[in-house]
């Protein structure tokens, strides 16, 4: 039977851990809300952007732009891997890193080189450990991403794609499905998929009025496409931020639950040990008394 004091100490230590995890859970819950609001706030821009893009694309029939063109070869592929800066959020980071490695091994088996743009300390340290040196690494942005961050990331892939240095670009991030669910996903950034620009409904097409473009449709498209890629990255960053808090909340909730259960079990063995000690003492006293009477 374990020593009473040892059990007591363990109970105290588990309790203090559960206090920490409970606090982290509550902090994460508050942060999810904020992150979700940010996603909502960004929606009007993204929607308007797609609308304008659709309008422009209709007038530039067979639009050609370096970002739309698929390259004939596929020799170098860039992956933007979005993780968090901090741990204690369950499988959040390992899912993304596994996906990233899958892409890397898939491309390498097709004889394509890969370069990784790592966002978040977790991606940086993991990839370095695995011997993959990220081409660019960003830290301290995954908690509160800004559009400028997205732009900075885009600046590493858009010119490279135009110059033919890379032949495709993907982003791996956690999509925020709901508060309790995140899904690691890969999205193709470049070349921009043409279906983005095609209106689904042919009828709308006919009802749409003639647009005037200034300076001209080609120029507008040329400027719009890079911004579109930037919005995609921005969205991925924000979804990842919201997912991070969601994942952390779930992880911390189960940690708190486990700690509570452990405290219960430990308290039970503590009481049992205490009872055993008392019984033992009584037996000794009774035994002692009996010995005295006998003499």
């Amino acid at each position: 039977m374990a020593n009473l004091r040892d059990i007591k100490q363990r109970i105290v230590s588990v309790q203090s851990t559960s206090q920490i995890t409970r606090t982290m859970e509550m902090v994460a819950t508050a942060k999810i809300k904020k992150a979700q609001e940010k996603i909502e706030a960004a929606r009007p821009y993204a929607l308007a952007m797609v609308e304008v893009l659709g309008n422009v694309a209709r007038f530039v029939q067979g639009a050609s732009h370096p970002l739309l063109e698929e390259h004939d070869k596929r020799e170098r592929v860039a992956v933007v891997s979005i993780t968090s800066d901090r741990g204690l959020c369950g499988a959040f980071n390992s899912n993304i890193l596994r996906l990233t490695e899958q892409i890397i091994s898939r491309e390498q088996s097709n004889d394509a080189e890969t370069s990784v743009i790592a966002v978040g300390k977790k991606a940086i340290s993991y990839l370095r450990y695995r011997g993959v040196e990220p081409t660019v690494a960003y830290r301290d942005i995954s908690d509160k991403p800004t559009f400028a961050d997205a732009r900075a990331i885009a600046a590493h892939i858009i010119p490279a794609y135009e110059a033919g240095e890379i032949d495709a670009a993907y982003v791996a991030f956690n999509r925020f499905k709901n508060v309790a669910e995140q899904k690691a996903e890969v999205y193709q950034l470049l070349p921009i998929e043409r279906r983005v620009m095609e209106t689904e409904d042919a009828q709308i097409d006919q009802l749409m009025p003639e647009y005037v473009f200034e300076p001209d449709a080609g120029t507008v498209l040329e400027r719009l496409l890079p911004t579109y890629v930037e919005t995609l990255i921005y969205r991925a960053l924000m979804e990842s931020a919201a997912s991070e808090h969601g994942a952390r909340r779930t992880a911390m909730k189960s940690a708190t639950d486990n700690a509570t259960e452990m405290v219960n079990t430990l308290t039970r063995s503590y009481n049992r040990a205490r009872q055993a000690a008392i019984t033992n003492e009584i037996a000794e006293i009774v035994g002692g008394a009996a010995a005295l009477e006998d003499s």
Binding site: V52, N55, P209, E210, Y211, V212, F213, E214, P215, A217
Partner: peptide, 14 residues
């Protein structure tokens, strides 16, 4: 500069 009043033709500009 461009000034836009009501009933302007549909326009997209940079």
């Amino acid at each position: 500069e461009i000034g836009i009043l009501p009933l302007h033709v549909p326009l997209v500009t940079v």
